[in-house]
Amino acid sequence: MVTGLGDRLKEARKAKGYTLDDLQGITKIQKRYLAGIENEEFNSMPGSFYVRAFIKQYAEAVGLDADEMLSLYKGSAETIEAEEEQQLASPTLTRRRSRHSNQLNEIMPKIIVALFIIVIIFVIAFLWKHNVSNTPKVPISSEDPIQVEDQPKSGDIGQQKENTEETNDDANVEDEQDKDEEVAEVEKQQKLENINIAGEDSTYSLENSEEFKLEIRTNGPSWIGVTDENRTERTPGARIMQAGEKVEVDVTDTEQIRIRVGRPTETEIYVNGELLEYASDTVPQNIIIDYQKE
């Protein structure tokens, strides 16, 4: 969708006597992104947030009204994003159906084996019951001597009672210890939950965890950037990750992490092995995790 935005910026640049190389030096924006703005090829850029920032810097550098240029871009942004989502939806749906089919194929042999084992157990139980019912009873002969066991003395009975009580006390102590260990294990279980949503920001709280490790996987092109509370980049660099890529980073030394996600539908974030559930469908969005250290 051509809006005239690119032509106006290009004409203003030429009127100033700037080349794309000159403009790159002034704005610190890569030349290929400047050319993309002039050609209105916004799909080649990291995301709408960066497109708006680049347009504003470009307009100010060539002496145009930044708000007017942004209004021209806004008219086409919704149409562009709708087309992108429609293109991404089809392969994502196909991939999910394929995944469900593969899971069913993996589970089916296990179900068949389980049913076979159940049938075998049923047959064995039936045969055993049938044999027991057909076993002849042996009559007791009156000539067989009847043996009377010696009755325990009163002192022996008391000793046995004391031993039984001691055994029960030991068992109760072990049960209480097991329960305490189970309660402690539950209390230490990691807790990751969403606590706030504001615009593009979704804030989460991480508790009951001695470490803070991230694993980010992409199923399709997605802009990824990870910074800490000091705005320090914690990955080799913010960039567009392609399908099948994965990045791991240990951020246990931080108190807060901000993950800029270009396409949440194509990005999986794991926190200490636990898959983070997106609380917002905003595109793009910032995932902010506050690490509550013990």
Rank of each mutant, 00 (worst) to 15 (best):
G25N: 15
A59E: 07
I26S: 06
I29Y: 05
I29R: 07
V62Y: 09
Q30M: 12
P46C: 01
D21M: 13
I37D: 00
N39M: 05
F42R: 12
Y58E: 14
Y33G: 02
D21S: 15
P46K: 00
A59I: 04
G36R: 08
P46A: 00
T27D: 00
K56R: 14
E41Q: 13
V62F: 09
D22F: 00
Y58A: 14
E38R: 04
D21E: 14
F42H: 12
E41M: 08
D22K: 05
V51S: 08
F42L: 11
D22G: 04
M45T: 04
L64I: 10
G36S: 10
F54G: 05
D22W: 02
A53R: 15
M45Y: 05
T27L: 01
G25H: 15
E60G: 00
Q30I: 11
A61F: 01
Q57K: 15
E40P: 03
A61D: 04
Y58N: 14
S44D: 11
Y33I: 02
D65Q: 09
I55K: 02
Q57W: 02
P46G: 01
P46Y: 01
N39G: 01
G25W: 15
G36M: 06
D21F: 08
E60T: 05
A59W: 00
R52K: 15
Q24M: 11
I37Y: 01
T27G: 03
P46H: 01
E60A: 05
E41A: 10
L34A: 07
A53K: 14
Y58T: 12
D65V: 04
I26N: 08
G36T: 05
S48N: 14
A35D: 04
L34V: 07
A66C: 06
Y33K: 03
N39S: 06
A35E: 10
L34H: 07
D65F: 01
A59C: 10
Q30S: 14
L34Y: 06
S48C: 09
V51K: 10
G36D: 09
Y50M: 09
I55A: 03
Y50S: 05
I37R: 03
